[in-house]
Amino acid sequence: MSMGSSWQVFSKATPPERGAFPLDLHGECADIVKQYLACMRSQKGQAVGCRDLTQRYLACRMDKGLMERDSFDNLGFSKEAEAAAAARSGAAPAVPSSPSSSPSSQQTK
């Protein structure tokens, strides 16, 4: 509890809202991690281009019991957020269009 507190005061950083991710010891979502990293490389680090994979990774964690199940609205995938992201990726120049593996085939609840 007081473990990092003096450091916290120093750097004025706050602890994560939902605590820690449990480790994916059996590599159950490792495939999606690989896809995501490949996507980030192809998008030159533009997070907006890999949103579907981000969502799929979180969905995978929830499905495997490695994350508390929650609405994607609370994770930055609400309708407003999607619309804003779509507007942004549309406006971003010279970014190769991602192979649109839509997350709709996944459980997105």
Binding site: S11, E17, A20, D24, L75
Partner: peptide, 29 residues
């Protein structure tokens, strides 16, 4: 800028155990 950097979930603040030779991806959201 730290006050604006919001971590939703990460691997910090908790002890993590790795067995000998184990390799793992640690996400920060």
């Amino acid at each position: 800028a730290a006050q604006y950097f919001n971590k939703i979930q990460c691997f910090c603040f908790e002890e993590q155990k790795l067995a000998a030779g184990e390799e793992i991806d640690m996400p920060v959201f």
